[in-house]
Design a protein around this nucleic acid. Sequence first.
DNA 1: GTCTATAAATGGATAGAC
DNA 2: GTCTATCCATTTATAGAC
Lengths: 195, 195
Amino acid sequence: MVADRKTELIRIATELVMQNGFDSFSYSDLAKHLNIRKASIHHHFPKKQDLGLAILDQVKGSCADHFQCISSQSISASKKLDLAFNLGRDLCDSGNRICPVGSFQAEFNVIPPSMQTKLREIEDLEIDFFTKILDQGRKEGCFHFQGTPRDEALFVVSTLKGALQYARTHDKSIFAKAVNQLKRSLKPQATPAAA
Amino acid sequence: MVADRKTELIRIATELVMQNGFDSFSYSDLAKHLNIRKASIHHHFPKKQDLGLAILDQVKGSCADHFQCISSQSISASKKLDLAFNLGRDLCDSGNRICPVGSFQAEFNVIPPSMQTKLREIEDLEIDFFTKILDQGRKEGCFHFQGTPRDEALFVVSTLKGALQYARTHDKSIFAKAVNQLKRSLKPQATPAAA
DNA sequence: GTCTATAAATGGATAGAC
DNA sequence: GTCTATCCATTTATAGAC
């Protein structure tokens, strides 16, 4: 089941982005993981920027798939949000990794414009995904928040990304704790029926 | 008012960490900014790790000062939180930068253990700072949240760090929007006096 | 404390054989 | 598609003159 080389290269490169960052892994690192030579990687991805774009395309596709899978289900917004949080939890539990989007964000000023653009597209996917869930949830009455669903989505993704970073450097349990507080903040309390 | 060279080096290096990341700036970059040669920097900081530790020490001291300045005031927790958020807002408005702590976090696996340890100390400062404000605020009745003040502090710092990253890559206004939702989530609503 | 010069290693990239 | 070999630029780092 060793997928074709190109796919495998992207898979491992994505792994290295999550662990070390795009600028901090080299073709040499990648070559060692696959037990091939650097030049072979250049055959598939002549420039590192080409590899970077391929990684981002893969991440974008993966995000789109996961989001589509969750969004299309006929379940409550609350359950959808839990499924989304599970994606972050799994990443966190796998150890030593942060979200690839967060990793590229931190290097934003040192990646080429083509990669910056692609990164923003993934961010849009994330934000739109949470916006819809939050909108659905408020209409269903399972979430309470003021302001627009989009602003609340910005709040949610920010929390998730930040929590993943603290979880890796400080204490794995931080992710679950932060997410739990986030979920509590969304719980409707004894409020006037204003929504 | 050109502070001594060592101080100036740390200041500019911190700037480069916030803009590009620790691994993505070189002694050459730093030397150009100060119009001196690389070797002169090695005189002050023989190894890059020495410079990294000096940056982290400076950040730690700066955090401690800011936090102390805010914490020691006789004002409401709500006002203290606003002052803290203003620190992030200023960073965000200054353009092209993220929090140095967030930048180092993203590179956690590629910095030496001595720097990892120092970074964790800064994270502890941040978390303790927000823990105290949130605890004070809940007692005063100006904040509402369930769970421990510390868990809520983890939630708050995660949101802030994540929002800074999205603000830089995507849209500056994201920081204010995310923080606004965060503040709203802390506002006590018509709740039973359970706290 | 800063400089020139240079070492040693690494990283990205190419040419050309197999 | 992978290899060896090599190039060139960069990066960290040191030696030693001023």
